[in-house]
Design a protein around this nucleic acid. Structure first.
Length: 345
RNA sequence: CCGCCCUUAGCUCAGACUGGUAGAGCAGUCGACUGUAGAUCGACUUGCCCCCCGUUCAAAUCGGGGAGGGCGGACCA
């Protein structure tokens, strides 16, 4: 595969690449490494899946991929995860992530899993963190993490250590590429500024779009109705999509369309399948789409009505998470131990 | 170590001075209207009032103690 093809694969369906020329240079040199980190806090949802799907492209493009399960970060960010649940949540995340990677059409064995505490307590790492803390202002650090770390009237120090550690993770994992959702932008811009002073190249940054929530607002981990969980039952998925904000002919803040664009169609494309909308004859009969752009055009022209789209979308979204749901359902103890307050019986 | 302030519905808070076992907004649920959802109307729900002890016929409210959180002082003089 030549550099142009690898570039196309690695960057398709992404929001932003900083900088594309640097990525091109990495491909010319050989096999770059990329990493994405997830802090094991709340339950994994469909938004995680969209970033995960990209990893399959990375592997195919000849990139070494590492997934970091950032357990310390999960606690540093306002104690979102209690310290004594870090083991359980890390394990749940690993299994869920493997499921997503497999469902996305890649082999989980081709991805390296690393846990934060495996290396973030090393003397070298720690010492460098103190040095970085000494050279970075409060305001700069706060700004870097503002979209990731929980906002509060009385923020804890942990939220400021968070961006510094994430920056050091890039170096510790020797990553050429830092990949993540667009919310990570602030932190990785800090990394690009800081790392060259700490003996590591500024990482190429690739950002995935963040999906809108189903209620028209931002997707929120704490608001059930704004997102589809990976272990939601088929009926729960269909119902959430049915209840979703979806104005006819509009794509702004339209989570349903975004789910289809970034999740359903890429998977259908992988399997060579079409998207079928069952529509009563009264409204014109069934519709078949092979590309999202066709569906989008019909939706925008109001040829495709939300009331016909939603039931179909619900079915396909449920199918997409099906394999992951099966994995999680097969091991109920994972969720029970990771979220005892919710799954205790 | 000292002083002051805060803690009431899922969230933001009112009520406390002048005791009579709780309210608003938002959120949520359900209807109406739309061939979906939203918006808009209409209805409804929600509580260890941080904990313990005391005063009282009666305590979210008064007194004492404690916990958690915030702010300031103390060192630099």
């Amino acid at each position: 595969m030549d550099t142009a093809d690898r570039l196309e694969l690695a960057t398709r369906h992404t929001l932003e690449v900083i900088e594309e020329e640097e990525l091109e240079a990495l491909f010319d040199e050989g096999t770059p490494s990329a990493y994405i980190g997830y802090a094991p806090t709340g339950e994994m949802h469909i938004g995680h899946y969209t970033t995960m799907r990209k990893l399959a492209d990375f592997i195919e493009a000849g990139i070494d991929v590492t997934v970091l399960i950032a357990d310390l970060h999960a606690h540093l960010d306002d104690e979102k995860s209690p310290f004594d649940l870090l083991d359980a949540r890390s394990e749940y995340y690993r299994v869920a992530i493997e499921g997503m990677i497999e469902a996305a059409g890649a082999d989980p064995d081709e991805i390296s899993f690393v846990r934060g505490t495996d290396f973030q307590l090393d003397e070298e790492y720690t010492l460098e963190m103190y040095r970085m803390a000494a050279e970075t202002t409060l305001a700069r650090t706060q700004r870097a993490g503002s979209r990731v770390v929980r906002e509060s009237e009385s923020p804890n120090l942990g939220g400021l250590i968070y961006p510094l550690m994430q920056t050091l993770d890039v170096k510790a994992l020797d990553a050429d590429i830092a990949y993540g959702g667009d919310d990570q932008r602030g932190i990785y811009m800090l990394s690009r500024e800081t790392l060259p002073d700490h003996g590591h190249d500024a990482p190429v940054c690739i950002f995935a779009p963040l999906l809108s929530g189903l209620t028209g607002e931002e997707m929120s981990a704490s608001k059930e109705d704004t997102k589809v969980n990976l272990n939601d039952s088929h009926d729960a998925v269909v119902e959430k999509i049915e209840d979703a904000y979806c104005p006819m002919g509009e794509r702004e803040d339209n989570g349903v369309l975004e789910y289809l664009e970034y999740l359903v169609f890429p998977v259908l494309e992988e399997h060579g399948e079409s998207f079928v909308v069952e529509r009563p004859d009264e409204y014109g009969g069934n519709l078949v789409y092979d590309e999202f752009e066709e569906l989008e055009a019909d939706f925008l022209s109001e040829e495709l009505h939300p009331a016909d789209l939603k039931p179909a979308a619900g079915e396909y979204v449920s199918d997409v998470i099906g394999p992951i749901r099966e994995r999680l359902d097969a091991r109920p103890e994972l969720l029970a131990e990771a979220y005892p307050e919710k799954y205790d019986q």
